[in-house]
């Protein structure tokens, strides 16, 4: 287990000059039924620094989710390199890791919160068990410790502890999403990937989940990539933002800058859509 502070919080990284994640030339092509080439994303390059939240915004089909899926090894890219400083000293391209290393990457170094909790949770395993799964992968072998840790994460994400031994299949959408966030925090991953985490929730629940993520981010100094089509979510969570269209990054910069002074015509359109 990693060295943690008393409260289980990763100590803040003071030497923030080195990026936590470097992505170079990430490209993913699919083959269409007629044999043509479909570009999901093309030559996407960016860095993420420790403790920051990077937003990726774009319309559906812009390739933003593909970027996350490639990073989390759900999908293998056509080409590109990515280095995570916590993973094998930042020397191994994530997409050249062997299966065992990739599993370690998914259970220790990164976690993903999917839009649909069905993807991130096993709904027929208890809420506590879902969190235990990541802890067990990290060789936790004491039930009392596992339960203490799981309740810690669940209370942080405001899931009532008396539901810990219930199946998430019977939870509301908002609560499933909170369990998924609790699971994503388990093992203290260096990088958390959030894919459209509020899409599909009603507005009041959305606000609660966003507050929660922002609160956790501030308290834990969590490094994250937030993907959303919703500029409101990006405005609330992201320090820096990439704007994607048709698989390409068309604009990148500080979130405030992009929202106040969009340069690319597509970004201008996007910003106008929200503010009017």
């Amino acid at each position: 287990m990693e060295a943690l502070t008393e409260s289980g919080i990763r100590p803040p990284d003071t030497a923030a000059e080195q990026p936590l994640l470097r992505v170079k030339g990430l490209t993913k092509h699919y083959q269409s039924a007629s044999g043509g080439r479909i570009v999901a994303c093309e030559d996407v390059t960016f860095d993420v620094y420790p403790g920051e939240v990077l937003g990726i915004v774009g319309e559906s089909g812009s390739g933003k989710s593909t970027v996350l899926q490639c990073l989390f090894q759900d999908v293998m890219p056509t080409s590109g390199e990515a280095y995570l400083s916590s993973f094998l000293g930042g020397t191994r391209n994530l997409w050249e890791a062997d299966r065992r290393e990739r599993r370690h990457l998914r259970t220790h170094d990164m976690s993903m919160v999917y839009q649909n909790p069905r993807q991130g949770l096993n709904l027929m395993v208890t809420a506590g068990g879902n969190i235990a799964e990541r802890l067990l992968a990290a060789e936790w072998r004491k039930v009392a410790d596992i339960r203490a840790k799981a309740s810690d994460y669940l209370s942080r994400t405001e899931v009532p502890l008396d539901r810990m031994d219930d199946f998430p299949a019977f939870f509301s959408g908002g609560m499933q999403q909170r369990v998924q966030i609790a699971k994503a925090l388990a093992n203290n991953p260096a990088l958390v990937l959030l894919d459209e985490l509020t899409t599909g929730l009603d507005v009041s629940v959305q606000a609660g989940v966003l507050d929660l993520v922002r609160d956790i981010q501030h308290r834990l100094g969590m490094t994250a990539i937030v993907v959303s089509h919703d500029l409101g979510v990006i405005r609330l969570l992201a320090d820096r933002t990439l704007v994607m269209k048709d698989g390409h990054v068309v604009e990148a910069g500080l979130t405030d800058q992009i929202l106040e002074d969009p340069q690319h015509p597509y970004t201008q359109l996007l910003v106008n859509c929200v503010t009017h």
Binding site: R100, R103, T126, A132, E133, L136, A137, R141, V143, D165
Partner: peptide, 22 residues
């Protein structure tokens, strides 16, 4: 078989954990 090959037994342990909880 690939779980055996990679010694990936966390889901086996999870089943035991769930058993103990229930």
């Amino acid at each position: 078989r690939s779980m055996h090959a990679e010694m990936d037994y966390s889901r086996m342990w999870l089943a035991l954990y769930e058993d103990i909880v229930r």
